[in-house]
Simulated assay, not measured.
Amino acid sequence: MTHEEAIKRAEYIGQVAEEGLFEADRNNGYSSKLKDAIHETQIHRLLRPKKYGGFGLGHDTMAEVVRTVAQHSVSGAWVTYFMPLHETWVAMLPPRAREEIFASDQFVSDIFFPIGKIEYVEGGVRLSGEWKWGSGIDFCGWIGLGAMVDVPGQPGGPQPCLVTVKVSEGEIVKDWNAFGLNGTGSNTFRINNVFSRWDMVLPLGAIKKNTVPIGGDYDPNEPVYRVPFGPAFCVGFGAICVGAAQRLQRELHERIRSRQRVVLGMKEWESPVAQRNLGEVTTQVETIEALFGRYVNQLKDWCKVGKTSIESEEEARMAAWRAYISRSASQIGFRSLELLGGAAAYRGDLVEVFARDLLMISIHVGQAYEDHMMFYGRAQYGMSQHPLV
């Protein structure tokens, strides 16, 4: 698959996602039509190493795929993004686990919060617990669950890990009903005393420090192995925000042009106030486009030289950029809603759904504005930053 072909396939996924957008928002999750579209187009294999049937493309291609889908649906782009994204940590597992998961060609989910209860047994661990925010889990065959684990051969004692199990070994609790991102189907997942082999346990601290797969046996020329794990893993959040903001700007432009303001006795687009407002929103969109472009270009530069380990300040800077992009996109969403008035506020209006969905992204742990601005400031003084993102 080429970059151009990937974008063409993403446009098809986006059309499927937009067609089911309002139903997904009402039903707290997309139907299998979106799952089938992602699987049929093989978008989930974008970043997977070629050795395992993947396309070995870069994060710039994935970002453009996600941005393309986001212009049709924020929740649809979120789910689409996660399917190739989660294969990147599978690529860091020991060879046996990689081969088994990739050979199944099933989608992979994860929930990073290290809250699972661990029991050490021969050959691995037994895991119990309940995790919320399992985005797209209904579509997945595998899931990595967060827990603090003392992994053999890894220094420093217990560290945050993803413990991989089959989704069929646990229970999906259908409790997702949030303010926004309802189409992501981010249900709770619960398991009790499920065994996971050691090769299915990924030490995140080690991978975050240096993007080298456990157990070796990999091609260092594959893009997934040539970038710092954290910033590369989170690139799609900015892509969603930029794509959604671009769609909102177009909606605002078109609706202002067609809107009649009776109290003003004119078409709204003829009003200098409306013209000023459109100019402001367009500039906001262009600002986050530029910052996200810088983010993607930084990943591309690192990929060219194979830089897999970065300083805390560099990582904190990338996180701060994501936080700025996501908060700005959320503000664009609600500003668009405000400017278009009551007609755009009904449930089932694209602007209304996009605004709610973008707010949810802005409060996600990977983009939380206050946290990441603080961590960026801390890092500039040589202090610790966020342990996971």
Rank of each mutant, 00 (worst) to 15 (best):
I43D: 02
H39V: 12
Q15L: 12
T41N: 09
M62P: 03
I38G: 02
K33G: 08
W78F: 15
Y30K: 03
H39D: 03
G54I: 01
V79F: 10
D36P: 09
T61K: 09
Q71P: 02
L34N: 03
G76D: 02
M62V: 11
Q42H: 07
L47W: 04
D36W: 11
A70G: 07
E64Q: 15
Y12P: 00
L57A: 12
G29Q: 01
G54S: 05
T61A: 14
G58D: 15
G54V: 02
G54L: 01
W78R: 07
F55T: 00
V65S: 02
A63C: 07
H59A: 13
I38W: 08
F55P: 04
A17W: 11
F55I: 01
S75Q: 05
V66C: 06
R45Y: 09
S73F: 04
G76N: 08
Q71D: 11
I38H: 04
T68W: 06
W78Q: 03
E19D: 10
V16M: 02
H59D: 12
A77R: 13
I13N: 01
G54W: 01
H44W: 13
H39L: 14
I43Q: 04
K33T: 08
S32I: 09
V65T: 04
I13A: 02
G54K: 03
V79Q: 04
Y81V: 05
A24K: 00
T61S: 13
Q42P: 00
Y81I: 07
Y30M: 06
Y52V: 05
